[in-house]
Write a protein that binds this DNA or RNA. Sequence first.
RNA 1: GCCCUGGUAGUAUAGUCCGGUCUAGUAUAGGCGGCUGUCGCCCGCCCGACCCGGGUUCAAAUCCCGGCCAGGGCGCCA
Length: 450
Amino acid sequence: MNFQSRRVQTMNYNVSAHSWKRTHYTMEITPDLDGKEVTLTGWIKEIRDLGGIKFLLLRDKDGIVQITVPRDEVDRQIIEQVDKLQRQDCVSIRGTVRRMDKAPRGVEVTPKSIIILNTAKQPLPLDITGKTPADIDVRLDARILDLIRDEAQAIFRIRHVTLEAIREFFSKNGFIEIHTPKIIATATEGGANLFPVAYFEREAFLAQSPQLYKEQLVIDFEKVYEIGPTFRAEKSHTRRHLTEFISVDIEEAFATAEDVMSVAEQLLQHVCRTVNEKCRRELDILKYRVETPSIPFKRLTYDEVINELRENGIKISWGEDIPTVAYRTLGKLHPYFYFIIDWPTSLKPFYIKPRDGKPEISEGFDLMWHWIEIASGGTRVHNKDLLIKRLKEQNLNPESFKYHLQVFDYGMPPHAGWAIGLERLVMMLTGIRNIREVVLFPRDRFRLTP
RNA sequence: GCCCUGGUAGUAUAGUCCGGUCUAGUAUAGGCGGCUGUCGCCCGCCCGACCCGGGUUCAAAUCCCGGCCAGGGCGCCA
């Protein structure tokens, strides 16, 4: 090739430099597009250079397609561009689709023009192919790169499908989606510690639950649900605790605990079925299987639970809460979903209704999956005088609940509800053992960044 | 708040118990070179690390003390 012709070719190359806008996503590249010219955008995930032929794996939001570069079949300018490419460089590639049995998915693209839209600094802080594993601490520090891994992609697709299924279920069943304030005025409910925030000249708090608001809203909408963040300033540092997590809450007017337990069962069955149907590929990646539960779920009374635990060597006297070791034992005895009902009233929050005629027993329940609590709820107190009595019994000041209590003068119906911890549900659906894995940017006792 | 375990190249590990051929091994990533069908490609060469501070000792990655950081567990947690 003489100087003249090379120069002409360079000019042609420059003239033909394509717009970087994509024509197809990687997963749309199929063998039947053989011979067609396409433009793809994405990131280089892996490079395998065999000398005379080079394979690039181009990743976009849906998947991967192989870019094949046979040295003697493409322009020198392409080779020069390709030789510059590194893992995680951001590129636009225009090229020809080729049906090829030897390629992944039976198809590959041979480039005609490459635009490097941005480069990635090497070496990367972790292996985006996931072949060299990194500790969770390292991965969370470089979370954006970590989320490229197939496992992470699978987890968050399952999380997405879970949320979609939940919303679909609620819509079909007549619930309306609400959003209640996350900045609240007073630390009212007792129990979990709240995070204080500086709110202009006052102190405010991050909400630990939409509980009071959702109860009030049953007057206006009867059936409400909220999927939103909750904040808990607990010093727990375990693989099932976060300081910020997503709570899936419902509240329903003219309903009892048994009614909303039924809603929970149906919802979980629907979610498990949907994830099984829509996330086969993701479950394969995670090497996990979700069993679609049959309903109704087992209902164990608190009394039955403590008897069962006693038979297994764990002594709990009536009225005591169930410690973690005991839950682990219970999880072995009941390996899937089960409710624990008939809790002592003293162990439940003030808004849980004591049973009529037997007030030491409450109408509260917990929904367990193995040894982990994934939901809790119950029939609520809807009588104002009883609610005030319950507040006092729990050493809470009715005065600080004045805005909540006034609503009980406006025709508060009997109602019931529950809350599911979304992350714990996603752990269950993915088989992931550390809750931080199922949150994009987890917050725990010690982690506030990135 | 308490308890346990750990901290070695960008990442993941071996070595630590029982101090000395550790000039710190290996894999992967990264750099350079070679290789035309890879799909955890392969081959050769190279770069790169003992968390910080103090102590013991002739000698410390290794033992001791303190700190920091991380992981896990307990308590706590609607």
